[in-house]
């Protein structure tokens, strides 16, 4: 890392502090890990189950974020008016809400006594809480803003020149969206999806409140870490390391490519 000529030296001190704040706690985790027992701790059925469940649910919620969040970002970025400003604030709510409150809110909507949950139960016999679907919903709820914010920023940054030109050349709105907007969005879509995946992977509060905690069904890695920390700190640290490794892999492997855009 050579100091770039364009970067003022004064920035390096706070930048270093910021990096230390992120890196040092993780270093502390590494220092406390019981490396001899690590292989045994990580290959336990509970650990592998939690890892698999975490990867599957985080992947599903990322897909849900992309499918639902992309249209939302386009609508927010390309519409004007006061209502849109309010909507934009509402979309950001999951970022501000403590995840446990988010979980409670989901319970009050989709729980047995929630208005939608009650309807689902009576009409279709479907109950959402305590299922893997509930984990995916909780993760999607907390991760969605990351996707919407990255996409909306990119859309506003790029402006709508190309879309207007395409429209004047006779392209219909759907064609403009497909052939112009989406290709322009790909880099932001990539990084937004990575952020959403990372947030979904680390989700804890909303999941435990809304989905509960049961091995194989709803106990994702963060929940398993919390559970293990009650009795066996070594095992909790081992699981936490697993989570760190997965997160780093995702960010390192996917992020640069996502930033350059997949074309």
């Amino acid at each position: 890392m050579r100091p770039d000529r364009g970067v003022p030296r004064a920035l390096w001190i706070p930048a270093g502090l910021a990096l230390a704040l992120v890196v040092l706690p993780v270093a502390g985790l590494l220092a406390r890990a019981d490396w001899a027992r690590l292989p045994e701790l990580l290959t336990s059925a509970a650990a592998l189950n939690a890892l698999r469940l975490s990867l599957v649910t985080a992947a599903l919620s990322t897909v849900a974020c992309v499918l639902l969040g992309t249209p939302l970002a386009v609508v927010l970025a390309r519409s004007a008016g006061r209502g849109v400003r309010v909507l934009r604030a509402v979309v950001l709510l999951p970022l501000v809400l403590p995840p446990v409150v988010g979980g409670l809110a989901l319970l009050f909507l989709l729980g047995r006594n929630g208005f939608l949950g009650y309807l689902l139960d009576v009409v279709a016999g479907v109950r959402v809480p305590f299922t893997t679907a509930a984990v995916v919903i909780a993760q999607t709820f907390v991760a969605m803003p990351f996707l919407v914010v990255s996409l909306e920023g990119a859309l506003r940054g790029s402006g709508d020149r190309f879309e207007r030109v395409a429209a004047t050349l006779g392209a219909r709105p759907w064609t403009v969206f497909r052939r112009v907007t989406v290709p322009l969005l790909l880099p932001a879509l990539g990084s937004g999806a990575v952020l959403s995946f990372a947030r979904a992977l680390g989700e804890f509060g909303a999941t435990i409140t809304f989905a509960g905690s049961l091995q194989d069904v709803t106990r994702t890695l963060p929940l398993a870490v919390y559970n293990q920390a009650e009795t066996d700190v070594d095992s909790a640290i081992a699981l936490a390391l697993l989570l760190v490794v997965v997160a780093v892999l995702v960010i390192v492997v996917a992020r640069p490519r996502a930033l350059e855009g997949i074309r």
Partner: peptide, 11 residues
């Protein structure tokens, strides 16, 4: 066969 094993009794 519980549907969920909670981290504390309040939960």
């Amino acid at each position: 066969r519980p549907d969920s094993e909670e981290p504390n009794v309040r939960a």
